[in-house]
Protein backbone atom coordinates (compact mmCIF):
# COMPACT_ATOMS: atom_id res chain seq x y z
CA UNK A 1 0.00 0.00 0.00
CA UNK A 2 1.24 3.43 -0.79
CA UNK A 3 1.53 6.16 1.77
CA UNK A 4 -1.40 8.00 0.25
CA UNK A 5 -3.72 5.01 0.50
CA UNK A 6 -2.72 4.49 4.12
CA UNK A 7 -3.39 8.13 4.91
CA UNK A 8 -6.66 7.95 3.04
CA UNK A 9 -7.75 4.99 5.15
CA UNK A 10 -6.62 6.73 8.31
CA UNK A 11 -8.80 9.68 7.43
CA UNK A 12 -11.80 7.41 6.93
CA UNK A 13 -10.95 5.69 10.19
CA UNK A 14 -10.74 8.94 12.10
CA UNK A 15 -14.10 9.96 10.75
CA UNK A 16 -15.69 6.65 11.71
CA UNK A 17 -13.97 6.89 15.08
CA UNK A 18 -15.51 10.31 15.68
CA UNK A 19 -18.99 8.91 15.24
CA UNK A 20 -18.11 5.98 17.49
CA UNK A 21 -16.78 8.37 20.10
CA UNK A 22 -20.06 10.27 20.21
CA UNK A 23 -22.02 7.06 20.76
CA UNK A 24 -19.51 5.73 23.27
CA UNK A 25 -20.02 8.79 25.47
CA UNK A 26 -23.67 7.80 25.89
CA UNK A 27 -22.63 4.38 27.17
CA UNK A 28 -20.00 5.75 29.48
CA UNK A 29 -22.30 8.36 31.04
CA UNK A 30 -25.14 5.93 31.66
CA UNK A 31 -22.83 3.25 32.96
CA UNK A 32 -21.13 5.73 35.23
CA UNK A 33 -24.40 6.63 36.89
CA UNK A 34 -26.64 3.58 36.77
CA UNK A 35 -24.01 0.84 36.33
CA UNK A 36 -26.09 -0.32 33.39
CA UNK A 37 -25.03 -1.30 29.91
CA UNK A 38 -27.74 0.45 27.96
CA UNK A 39 -28.16 -2.24 25.30
CA UNK A 40 -30.80 -0.06 23.66
CA UNK A 41 -28.35 2.78 22.98
CA UNK A 42 -27.30 1.36 19.62
CA UNK A 43 -30.94 1.09 18.63
CA UNK A 44 -31.62 4.69 19.64
CA UNK A 45 -28.84 5.53 17.24
CA UNK A 46 -30.50 3.42 14.54
CA UNK A 47 -33.90 5.01 15.16
CA UNK A 48 -32.31 8.44 14.81
CA UNK A 49 -31.29 7.33 11.35
CA UNK A 50 -34.91 6.65 10.42
CA UNK A 51 -36.10 9.88 12.01
CA UNK A 52 -33.71 11.80 9.81
CA UNK A 53 -34.94 10.03 6.69
CA UNK A 54 -38.53 10.97 7.45
CA UNK A 55 -37.80 14.47 8.68
CA UNK A 56 -35.83 15.28 5.55
CA UNK A 57 -38.66 14.09 3.37
CA UNK A 58 -40.80 17.02 4.45
CA UNK A 59 -38.53 19.68 5.93
CA UNK A 60 -35.45 21.61 4.86
CA UNK A 61 -32.29 20.16 6.31
CA UNK A 62 -31.66 22.50 9.25
CA UNK A 63 -35.18 21.92 10.55
CA UNK A 64 -34.88 18.21 9.86
CA UNK A 65 -31.71 17.98 11.91
CA UNK A 66 -33.30 19.77 14.83
CA UNK A 67 -36.40 17.59 14.68
CA UNK A 68 -34.27 14.45 14.56
CA UNK A 69 -32.18 15.48 17.54
CA UNK A 70 -35.18 16.54 19.61
CA UNK A 71 -37.12 13.35 18.91
CA UNK A 72 -34.08 11.19 19.62
CA UNK A 73 -33.44 12.94 22.92
CA UNK A 74 -37.04 12.63 23.99
CA UNK A 75 -36.99 8.96 23.07
CA UNK A 76 -33.87 8.39 25.18
CA UNK A 77 -35.44 10.03 28.21
CA UNK A 78 -38.69 8.19 27.62
CA UNK A 79 -36.98 4.80 27.47
CA UNK A 80 -35.31 5.43 30.80
CA UNK A 81 -38.58 6.50 32.43
CA UNK A 82 -40.51 3.60 31.04
CA UNK A 83 -38.11 0.69 31.14
CA UNK A 84 -35.31 1.41 33.61
CA UNK A 85 -36.72 3.61 36.34
CA UNK A 86 -39.24 1.03 37.63
CA UNK A 87 -36.37 -1.43 38.07
CA UNK A 88 -33.94 0.82 39.87
CA UNK A 89 -34.07 -1.25 43.04
CA UNK A 90 -34.35 -4.60 41.28
CA UNK A 91 -31.33 -6.88 40.85
CA UNK A 92 -28.74 -5.79 38.28
CA UNK A 93 -29.71 -8.63 35.97
CA UNK A 94 -33.34 -7.47 35.67
CA UNK A 95 -32.47 -4.01 34.47
CA UNK A 96 -29.99 -5.43 32.00
CA UNK A 97 -32.65 -7.76 30.67
CA UNK A 98 -34.98 -4.80 30.42
CA UNK A 99 -32.37 -2.97 28.34
CA UNK A 100 -32.09 -5.98 26.06
CA UNK A 101 -35.88 -6.08 25.89
CA UNK A 102 -36.02 -2.46 24.76
CA UNK A 103 -33.39 -3.16 22.14
CA UNK A 104 -35.40 -6.15 20.92
CA UNK A 105 -38.57 -4.04 20.87
CA UNK A 106 -36.99 -1.18 18.93
CA UNK A 107 -35.55 -3.57 16.36
CA UNK A 108 -38.82 -5.41 15.87
CA UNK A 109 -40.82 -2.21 15.86
CA UNK A 110 -38.67 -0.66 13.19
CA UNK A 111 -38.74 -3.87 11.15
CA UNK A 112 -42.51 -3.66 11.33
CA UNK A 113 -42.75 0.04 10.56
CA UNK A 114 -39.96 0.43 8.02
CA UNK A 115 -39.41 -3.19 6.85
CA UNK A 116 -36.05 -4.91 6.98
CA UNK A 117 -35.08 -3.68 3.51
CA UNK A 118 -32.29 -1.09 3.75
CA UNK A 119 -33.55 2.46 3.33
CA UNK A 120 -31.42 4.96 1.49
CA UNK A 121 -30.09 7.69 3.74
CA UNK A 122 -30.70 11.11 2.22
CA UNK A 123 -27.65 13.03 1.08
CA UNK A 124 -27.06 16.43 2.49
CA UNK A 125 -25.32 18.23 -0.35
CA UNK A 126 -23.06 20.24 1.96
CA UNK A 127 -21.89 17.19 3.84
CA UNK A 128 -21.16 15.16 0.75
CA UNK A 129 -19.09 17.78 -1.04
CA UNK A 130 -15.66 16.41 -1.91
CA UNK A 131 -12.54 18.30 -0.96
CA UNK A 132 -9.07 17.66 -2.28
CA UNK A 133 -6.17 18.00 0.13
CA UNK A 134 -2.95 17.27 -1.69
CA UNK A 135 -3.32 13.70 -2.89
CA UNK A 136 -6.10 12.94 -0.44
CA UNK A 137 -9.73 13.43 -1.17
CA UNK A 138 -12.39 13.56 1.46
CA UNK A 139 -16.01 14.53 1.71
CA UNK A 140 -16.89 17.36 4.03
CA UNK A 141 -18.50 14.97 6.55
CA UNK A 142 -15.25 13.03 6.88
CA UNK A 143 -13.46 16.16 7.95
CA UNK A 144 -16.34 17.55 9.95
CA UNK A 145 -16.90 14.45 12.10
CA UNK A 146 -13.67 14.45 14.10
CA UNK A 147 -13.69 18.21 14.51
CA UNK A 148 -17.30 18.29 15.64
CA UNK A 149 -16.61 15.40 18.01
CA UNK A 150 -13.75 17.21 19.67
CA UNK A 151 -15.78 20.40 20.00
CA UNK A 152 -18.76 18.57 21.49
CA UNK A 153 -16.55 16.69 23.94
CA UNK A 154 -15.00 19.97 24.97
CA UNK A 155 -18.41 21.49 25.62
CA UNK A 156 -19.49 18.38 27.49
CA UNK A 157 -16.40 18.46 29.69
CA UNK A 158 -17.16 22.06 30.63
CA UNK A 159 -20.72 21.09 31.39
CA UNK A 160 -19.67 18.19 33.57
CA UNK A 161 -16.87 19.98 35.38
CA UNK A 162 -18.16 23.52 35.72
CA UNK A 163 -21.94 23.49 36.06
CA UNK A 164 -24.11 22.51 38.99
CA UNK A 165 -25.82 19.78 37.01
CA UNK A 166 -22.44 18.42 36.04
CA UNK A 167 -21.39 18.35 39.65
CA UNK A 168 -24.57 16.45 40.55
CA UNK A 169 -23.78 13.98 37.78
CA UNK A 170 -20.28 13.43 39.04
CA UNK A 171 -21.46 13.02 42.62
CA UNK A 172 -24.08 10.50 41.55
CA UNK A 173 -21.60 8.48 39.58
CA UNK A 174 -19.20 8.40 42.53
CA UNK A 175 -21.76 7.18 45.01
CA UNK A 176 -25.39 6.81 44.03
CA UNK A 177 -26.77 6.25 47.53
CA UNK A 178 -24.87 9.05 49.22
CA UNK A 179 -25.78 11.48 46.44
CA UNK A 180 -29.41 10.59 47.03
CA UNK A 181 -29.03 11.21 50.76
CA UNK A 182 -27.38 14.54 50.09
CA UNK A 183 -30.55 15.71 48.41
CA UNK A 184 -29.47 15.45 44.79
CA UNK A 185 -32.48 14.94 42.55
CA UNK A 186 -31.47 11.57 41.17
CA UNK A 187 -34.29 11.35 38.66
CA UNK A 188 -33.29 14.64 37.12
CA UNK A 189 -29.64 13.65 36.95
CA UNK A 190 -30.52 10.35 35.27
CA UNK A 191 -32.79 12.11 32.78
CA UNK A 192 -30.13 14.66 31.93
CA UNK A 193 -27.65 11.83 31.45
CA UNK A 194 -29.93 10.02 29.05
CA UNK A 195 -30.73 13.26 27.26
CA UNK A 196 -27.06 14.04 26.66
CA UNK A 197 -26.30 10.46 25.65
CA UNK A 198 -29.17 10.31 23.18
CA UNK A 199 -28.47 13.74 21.76
CA UNK A 200 -24.88 12.76 21.04
CA UNK A 201 -26.07 9.46 19.58
CA UNK A 202 -28.38 11.47 17.33
CA UNK A 203 -25.54 13.65 16.10
CA UNK A 204 -23.33 10.59 15.71
CA UNK A 205 -26.09 8.94 13.72
CA UNK A 206 -26.30 11.79 11.20
CA UNK A 207 -22.54 11.75 10.71
CA UNK A 208 -22.32 7.97 10.55
CA UNK A 209 -25.19 7.29 8.18
CA UNK A 210 -24.28 10.09 5.81
CA UNK A 211 -21.16 8.06 5.16
CA UNK A 212 -22.89 4.63 5.06
CA UNK A 213 -25.85 5.74 2.95
CA UNK A 214 -28.45 3.25 4.22
CA UNK A 215 -30.25 2.26 7.43
CA UNK A 216 -31.75 -1.08 8.44
CA UNK A 217 -33.41 -2.05 11.74
CA UNK A 218 -30.21 -3.85 12.69
CA UNK A 219 -27.79 -1.06 11.78
CA UNK A 220 -27.50 -0.12 15.43
CA UNK A 221 -26.59 -3.45 16.98
CA UNK A 222 -22.94 -3.86 16.06
CA UNK A 223 -21.91 -0.20 16.18
CA UNK A 224 -23.65 -0.07 19.55
CA UNK A 225 -21.68 -2.98 20.96
CA UNK A 226 -18.46 -1.65 19.51
CA UNK A 227 -19.01 1.69 21.12
CA UNK A 228 -19.59 0.03 24.44
CA UNK A 229 -16.26 -1.70 23.96
CA UNK A 230 -14.77 1.70 23.18
CA UNK A 231 -16.12 3.00 26.46
CA UNK A 232 -14.69 0.04 28.38
CA UNK A 233 -11.39 0.39 26.57
CA UNK A 234 -11.07 4.01 27.62
CA UNK A 235 -12.20 3.30 31.17
CA UNK A 236 -15.90 3.26 31.75
CA UNK A 237 -17.31 6.43 33.28
CA UNK A 238 -14.50 8.47 31.77
CA UNK A 239 -15.51 10.78 28.92
CA UNK A 240 -12.12 11.44 27.31
CA UNK A 241 -11.45 7.72 27.65
CA UNK A 242 -14.56 6.92 25.62
CA UNK A 243 -13.42 9.35 22.92
CA UNK A 244 -9.97 7.81 22.70
CA UNK A 245 -11.55 4.36 22.61
CA UNK A 246 -13.94 5.41 19.85
CA UNK A 247 -11.20 6.79 17.65
CA UNK A 248 -8.95 3.81 18.27
CA UNK A 249 -11.59 1.27 17.33
CA UNK A 250 -12.70 3.29 14.31
CA UNK A 251 -9.18 3.53 12.92
CA UNK A 252 -8.18 -0.09 13.54
CA UNK A 253 -11.42 -1.34 12.10
CA UNK A 254 -10.99 0.68 8.92
CA UNK A 255 -7.42 -0.51 8.51
CA UNK A 256 -8.43 -4.15 8.99
CA UNK A 257 -11.07 -3.81 6.31
CA UNK A 258 -8.51 -2.17 4.03
CA UNK A 259 -6.15 -5.09 4.58
CA UNK A 260 -8.84 -7.58 3.52
CA UNK A 261 -9.80 -8.90 6.94
CA UNK A 262 -13.28 -7.44 6.89
CA UNK A 263 -14.89 -10.52 8.48
CA UNK A 264 -12.53 -10.12 11.40
CA UNK A 265 -12.99 -6.41 11.88
CA UNK A 266 -15.94 -6.95 14.23
CA UNK A 267 -14.25 -9.84 15.96
CA UNK A 268 -11.22 -7.66 16.56
CA UNK A 269 -13.26 -5.25 18.66
CA UNK A 270 -14.37 -8.00 20.97
CA UNK A 271 -10.95 -9.53 21.16
CA UNK A 272 -9.71 -6.10 22.19
CA UNK A 273 -12.39 -6.04 24.88
CA UNK A 274 -11.44 -9.40 26.31
CA UNK A 275 -7.74 -8.60 26.28
CA UNK A 276 -8.35 -5.22 27.88
CA UNK A 277 -10.49 -6.69 30.61
CA UNK A 278 -7.76 -9.17 31.39
CA UNK A 279 -4.83 -6.83 31.32
CA UNK A 280 -6.38 -3.70 32.74
CA UNK A 281 -10.03 -4.22 33.69
CA UNK A 282 -10.45 -0.56 34.58
CA UNK A 283 -9.64 0.54 31.05
CA UNK A 284 -7.01 3.04 29.97
CA UNK A 285 -8.08 5.87 32.24
CA UNK A 286 -10.47 4.23 34.70
CA UNK A 287 -10.23 4.21 38.46
CA UNK A 288 -10.09 1.16 40.61
CA UNK A 289 -13.12 0.20 42.63
CA UNK A 290 -12.98 -2.24 45.53
CA UNK A 291 -16.21 -3.73 46.72
CA UNK A 292 -16.76 -3.08 50.41
CA UNK A 293 -17.61 -6.10 52.53
Amino acid sequence: MSMTTILQHCLTGISLGGAYALIAIGYTLVYGILRLINFAHGDIFMMAGYFMIFALASFPWPVAIIITLVVTTVMGIGIERFAYKPLRNAPRMSIMISAIGVSYLLQNLSTYLFTAIPRGYPELPYLKKIYQIGELSASFVTILTPILTIVLVFVLMILVNKTKTGMAMRATSKDFETAKLMGININRVVSVTFAIGSLLAGIGSILYFTDRMSVTPFSGTLPGLKCFVAAVFGGIGNIPGAVVGGFFIGIVETLLVALGYSTFSDAFTFLLLIIMLLVKPTGLFGEKNVEKV
Binding site: R35, L36, I37, R92, M93, M96, L225, F228, V229, V232, D266, A267, T269, F270, L271, L273, I274, L277, P281
Partner: peptide, 15 residues
Amino acid sequence: KSDYLAIATLGLSEI
Protein backbone atom coordinates in the same frame (compact mmCIF):
# COMPACT_ATOMS: atom_id res chain seq x y z
CA LYS B 1 -18.30 -8.92 37.08
CA SER B 2 -21.87 -9.39 35.90
CA ASP B 3 -22.32 -6.90 33.08
CA TYR B 4 -18.78 -7.14 31.79
CA LEU B 5 -19.25 -10.86 31.61
CA ALA B 6 -22.40 -10.33 29.56
CA ILE B 7 -20.69 -8.16 27.00
CA ALA B 8 -17.57 -10.35 26.89
CA THR B 9 -19.55 -13.52 26.23
CA LEU B 10 -21.61 -11.69 23.64
CA GLY B 11 -18.38 -10.60 22.03
CA LEU B 12 -17.09 -14.13 22.17
CA SER B 13 -20.11 -15.34 20.33
CA GLU B 14 -19.49 -12.71 17.65
CA ILE B 15 -15.86 -13.80 17.35
